[in-house]
């Protein structure tokens, strides 16, 4: 408990590196335990990326050696020779198209659902979230026959299925954004003489922009990461990075190529994630949109 210190004897000020938040002050017993757990978690999350980076620069790395025996860029050369660049381009195009379609569709649906004027709202939001609960291969196996008979081109089929897979994420993200979005801003703008179009572009979209960015990022990830839908519905018309990685990883002795392709599949979403973080910080509404605003409003009298 508290030590008795005579009056007038000033306690030395805190070490400035110690957090000023009382609950986060380190306490000796828990500190060692917490540091150990944190170290283990860091290793857990980061370790699988190590072989990718090492193999990226390895020309030769035979079995017992702990580090590559010959460094170089043979993997890069080989990956380029095996269509890495077109695969990268097709992955990027597919992911961007999915994001460009699923984000506005999700935002529109979320806006309608938050304003509460949709008939059977529970059923509608259930259907919009359902692709999360439906394994991708089920949709593929059911629908290939429909898409084939309707003569829908493979690429279009892939995009339709991926947009559906991305919708739960965009709808949910935008519902969170719209729940915190105060419609009074739009009413205010109308009373100040802004047209509907002006309200949309100058008030509504800027206010939900952080939400839109998050939704678009998640939709991009769905398109960028997919394997099953692209391989089955695309039927070879598009070869994305995951398809290329899969074909090399299933073979033997392609470790360097797999590493190079994997790294190139990791970098774009990571760059987007960092950009998203910066965007969220720069934009002041982002933090307040996520705050517990709903429960903050004081309740009225009983």
């Amino acid at each position: 408990m508290a030590m008795l210190i005579p009056y007038g004897q000033r306690v030395t000020p805190d070490d400035p590196t110690v957090s000023s938040r009382g609950l986060m002050r380190p306490r000796p017993g828990g500190r060692t335990l917490r540091l150990t757990i944190a170290a283990l978690l860091t290793v857990w999350f980061a370790l699988p990326l190590v072989p990718l980076l090492l193999w990226f620069f390895a020309d030769r790395w035979s079995a017992p050696a702990v580090l590559p025996t010959e460094w170089g860029f043979d993997g890069v050369t080989s990956a380029l020779a095996n269509g890495a660049v077109p695969a990268f381009g097709q992955s990027l195009a597919l992911a961007l198209v999915v994001a460009a379609i699923a984000t506005p569709l999700g935002a529109m649906a979320a806006r309608a659902l938050t304003r509460g004027a949709v008939p059977f709202p529970r059923l509608v939001s259930g259907i919009l979230l359902a692709p999360l609960a439906l394994p991708a291969f089920v949709a593929v196996m059911g629908l290939t026959i429909v898409l084939l008979r309707a003569r829908v081109p493979g690429v279009v089929g892939v995009v339709i299925l991926l947009v559906a897979a991305a919708l739960p994420y965009t709808v949910y993200t935008m519902r969170v954004a719209y729940a915190a979005h105060d419609l009074a801003y739009e009413d205010e703008a109308r009373t100040l003489g802004a047209s509907r179009w002006n309200v949309l572009w100058r008030v509504h979209l800027p206010l939900v922009a952080p939400g839109l960015a998050r939704a678009a990022f998640l939709a991009f990830l769905v398109g960028w990461s997919d394997y099953v839908i692209t391989v089955l519905v695309g039927g070879g018309t598009i070869v994305t990075l995951p398809l290329l990685v899969a074909s090399f990883a299933a073979g033997v002795g392609n470790d360097a190529v797999v590493a190079v392709l994997s790294v190139s599949a990791i970098v774009p979403p990571l760059v987007l994630l960092l950009a998203l973080g910066r965007f969220g910080r720069r934009y002041p509404t982002a933090s307040y949109l996520h705050g517990p605003t709903a429960s903050q409003s004081p309740k009225g009298s009983p």
Partner: peptide, 28 residues
Amino acid sequence: MSLALVSPALLVAGFVVIGGIGMSLVQS
């Protein structure tokens, strides 16, 4: 108005979910 906003997303998700499950069931 609300229905118009929600229907594009609903059509895509509904086609894939209901169509996917339904057609799988029919084929099986």
